[in-house]
Write a protein that binds this DNA or RNA. Structure first.
Lengths: 110, 110
DNA sequence: AACTTTTATGAGCATAGCAGCATAAACGGC
DNA sequence: GCCGTTTATGCTGCTATGCTCATAAAAGTT
């Protein structure tokens, strides 16, 4: 009987965490950072997002502990802090794939 | 080099999936259904949500294949379709806990 | 201190998504 | 057929959040 009647607080925190991952921009930033730590200028160049946009998204991810940053002079070097997101994405990705495959199979049968 | 530069489409689909889980109401419904299949009336009673609200959330979850339903006369019996959500929630829950613990330890040291 | 570079933040706009009300649609019983 | 029960859906308002512009704050240089 896993996850039996979780408290509203837990549900809220879970939902809040998933909400962080519910934005393609944030996922992309996380993926970029997973390639290795880099500064904001590099993120701007790679993603095409505006500086303020990136700054806001990163601060959200940082509050959740998914990224951290360290100063290098005037620049900030961000890094991905948690492998959990990787695992979650891979689980979901696998599911998306198998689901599409089964839909394909259904089409074939019909 | 996991998750290297995923396509925008994949990012969108991942984000869309996580968005489904970013709503406490939907998580709660999934949890209720995980206790076992049940009809909408029971869900209304257990959660206190309005009928239309529940219907909408369930339809979203159904489109994603996270729940399915089967007719019993005029009523619909819904059931949770995928253990993935359980796994995801447990992973995140574990992370939330360890994170709070480390924050506690930090407080102790300071 | 003044100036440059880099990042964070306040204000405003636009849009997405939730929540409720009313109503339509599906199903069964008569 | 009509009526009651259960679920889905159109419409509406509201809130939250993404995104941009402009500007402030932080850090280094001279």
């Amino acid at each position: 009987m896993a996850l039996a009647a979780p408290s509203p607080q837990l549900l809220d925190e879970l939902a809040q965490f998933f909400r962080l991952l519910s934005e393609p921009a944030r996922l992309q930033l996380l993926c970029e950072l997973k390639q290795g730590p880099c500064d904001v200028a590099a993120l701007i160049e790679r993603t095409g997002f505006s500086q303020s946009h990136i700054s806001r998204q990163l601060s959200q991810l940082q509050r959740a502990g998914l990224v951290s940053c360290q100063r290098d002079g005037v620049r900030l070097i961000y890094r991905a802090e948690d492998a959990l997101v990787d695992d979650l994405c891979e689980l979901v990705q696998t599911r998306l794939r198998t689901r599409l495959e089964s839909q394909l199979a259904q089409l074939g049968k019909a």
